[in-house]
Structures are given as structure tokens and as C-alpha cells.
């Protein structure tokens, strides 16, 4: 499949419209309507690789726990006013039926553009749920990896051209780098399609040198605030010295999706893109390895109108850069 240079994409989630209530991780009539609307809007705005908006989703870790029949804790806080309910692993993990397959098939059935198949990674699932059964990190991570692997194989068979395995927990226990890699390895075992791992809001310098060894085709990384800091950012300094794009494709986050952050102007995003290209594509031939995206899922933004505006600004900025570069 030929994609434009500096392909644009999303990370996954989008704020739910008011009529979608009580999202529990599976598609219902309202979330189907919302998904169709979101797919159309992405096409209109001009996004190249679409995401389904996860408008059926409760939480990226909780939904797996729920699908596996795990008991759930009450709310725990992640930041500001964002909370999630953690699953309590109290028995061997076992998948009864596919968790994300129907959602992907529905969204892909609405469009000819590629839609990413979305999964949560094994380390994130291990860290964001409680464990009362395995008592051993390797066993826990590999047990979750087995679940994710079954999901990935289903998505590939259903025609997913891109599968994204979200691992925002990558730098939480950065001393477990080998376990992290093993988990991803297991999760993609037997899967030949293009695999992306999304990482965000972490102390990336702690894990940067290990990114190159990850068994994925692309790392999707939150960067907008680092790009604003320029080379005062420790991370960007490391990227400049040894671009991760030497080893794999990179999707660079250029839109800050956090609640309360105003819609950026196009010039700010253009500047971020050029800063990203300075460190990630110092040679022209590396340009084809770079995608452009928001930092994280737009669900964080909370306001759908604002999220659409941010998406439009991102696409406008990319078009401007493509024109200026003559690509």
C-alpha cells in the first residue's frame, strides 16, 4: 500500500458524544452510530490511516479485565480528573472470545482507507491491573501477552493492515526492559502485519536506547511538549544523536491532547513538525519513515469539537510542510 509522505493518523480514542452512555468495551447501537460519524469526519479532514475512536470503550485496561471476567476495583486516579477501575487478576488469565475483533471489523467495513486494529499491550495490562494470582512479573506479563497475541492473530485474519499495541507503561518499570520486550515478542508471535507500539507520557530517556530492539515496525511516541522545548529536551538530544528512525518507522506526536490545552495554531504545529524532522529525518530518505499524529488519543481532550479542530490543524500543518518540502 502506498502512503503519502508524512502520513497522518490518530492514536485511537475520541471523546464520546453525549448519546453514547455507559461504554463497557463492546459495540452497541449508539457507539456504532458514533463510530460511523467519526470515520466520516476523519475522511473529510483528510487523515490517511484512520482509527475507530474507541467510542465503545470504557478504559484500555479495564475493558480487557471486564472481557476476561475479572473482578474490578473501585476507581483509582491517573492524573488530574482521570480515573480508571483496575481488574484484579485472581485466577489464570483466559480469553473466552475475541475482545477487539468486532469493533475493528465494523470500523473497517465503513471505509476504504486503512483502519488500525487497536490492542492494549501486555506490560500495560500487567501494570494497570492488580495481581493476586501469578505473583511473578514474567508469568503475569506473558499471560497477558498470550491474550493480546490471540487478539492480534484475529485482527490479522480479519484483514487489519496495521495493528497498534498500546504500551504507555513502557517506562514505568524501566528496569524490566527485557520483560517488556518479551511481552511484545509474545504478543506479536505469528503475526506478519505491520505492528505499531504507542507510548506516551513517560520518562522516555530511561528507555530510549531499548526502543530500537522492540519487535515492532513503528514506534508511535508523544512528543509535542518535547518539540516545543527543542534541544533543551533531554529526549530530543538523545534522538538527534541516534535517531530511532534509523531502526524503524516513527509516528511523532505534534498535537497536545490534554484537557484545557487550547487548539494550537497551524504555525506552531508546523514548527513542531520541522523540529521533529530535524532530529528524526536528518537525511531526505528518512522522511518516508515519519508519520504525524496527535500525542495520544483525543479522548483525553474531552471536548469533541475541540478535538476535531485539533485534528484539522494537524492535517493543515502537514499539508503546509509537504508543500514547502515539495513532497
Amino acid at each position: 500500500m502506498k502512503l503519502p509522505l508524512l502520513s497522518t493518523t490518530g492514536v485511537g480514542s475520541f471523546p464520546k458524544p453525549d448519546y453514547v452512555k455507559g461504554a463497557k468495551g463492546y459495540l452497541d447501537d449508539d457507539s456504532k452510530v458514533a463510530t460511523e460519524e467519526f470515520i466520516r469526519r476523519q475522511e473529510e479532514i483528510g487523515i490517511d490511516i484512520l482509527v475507530d475512536g474507541e467510542l465503545y470503550r470504557g478504559d484500555m485496561a479495564t475493558d480487557y479485565a471486564r472481557a476476561l471476567g475479572l473482578p474490578l476495583s473501585d476507581w483509582t486516579r491517573s492524573y488530574d480528573n482521570r480515573f480508571w477501575k483496575r481488574g484484579i487478576v485472581d485466577a489464570p488469565l483466559e480469553r473466552k472470545e475475541p475482545i477487539q475483533l468486532e469493533q475493528f471489523k465494523y470500523a473497517q467495513g465503513l471505509t476504504d482507507k486503512p483502519v488500525k486494529g487497536m490492542l492494549t499491550g501486555p506490560t500495560t495490562l500487567s501494570n494497570w491491573n492488580y495481581d493476586k494470582h501469578y505473583g511473578d512479573r514474567e508469568k503475569l506479563i506473558l499471560a497477558w501477552a498470550d491474550i493480546v497475541n490471540k487478539e492480534a492473530l484475529d485482527l490479522e485474519e480479519a484483514g487489519a493492515r496495521f495493528i497498534q499495541i498500546d504500551e504507555p507503561a513502557i517506562a514505568e518499570r524501566h528496569w524490566e526492559g527485557e520483560l517488556f520486550r518479551m511481552g511484545l515478542d509474545k504478543a506479536r508471535e505469528g503475526v506478519n502485519t505491520y505492528i505499531i507500539t504507542h507510548i506516551c507520557y513517560s520518562e522516555f530517556p530511561m528507555v530510549y536506547s531499548r526502543l530500537r530492539d522492540l519487535p515492532v515496525n513503528q514506534v508511535d511516541i508523544e512528543l509535542s511538549n518535547e518539540l516545543d522545548l527543542g534541544l533543551k529536551s533531554r529526549l530530543l538530544g538523545m534522538v538527534k544523536e541516534d535517531p530511532i528512525s534509523n531502526y524503524m518507522d516513527v509516528a511523532a506526536g505534534v498535537i497536545d491532547v490534554r484537557p484545557g490545552i487550547p487548539v494550537e495554531d497551524v504555525d506552531t504545529v508546523v514548527k513542531r513538525i520541522y523540529t521533529a524532522l530535524e532530529v528524526l529525518a536528518p537525511k531526505d530518505e528518512m522522511l518516508q519513515r515519519i508519520w504525524i499524529k496527535p500525542d495520544c488519543g483525543f479522548r483525553t481532550t474531552k471536548d469533541p469539537d475541540m478535538a476535531y479542530k485539533k485534528m484539522e490543524v494537524m492535517v493543515d500543518a502537514v499539508r503546509k510542510v509537504r508543500t514547502e518540502l515539495g513532497v
Binding site: Y79, A171, E172, R173, H174, Y201, S202, E203, E222, S224, N225, E226, D228, L229, R258
Partner: peptide
């Protein structure tokens, strides 16, 4: 500025 994880 950016949001990051609190330690592990």
C-alpha cells in the same frame, strides 16, 4: 509542560 509518569 509535558505530562510524565511519577516514577514507576
Amino acid at each position: 509542560g509535558g505530562m510524565k509518569k511519577t516514577f514507576h
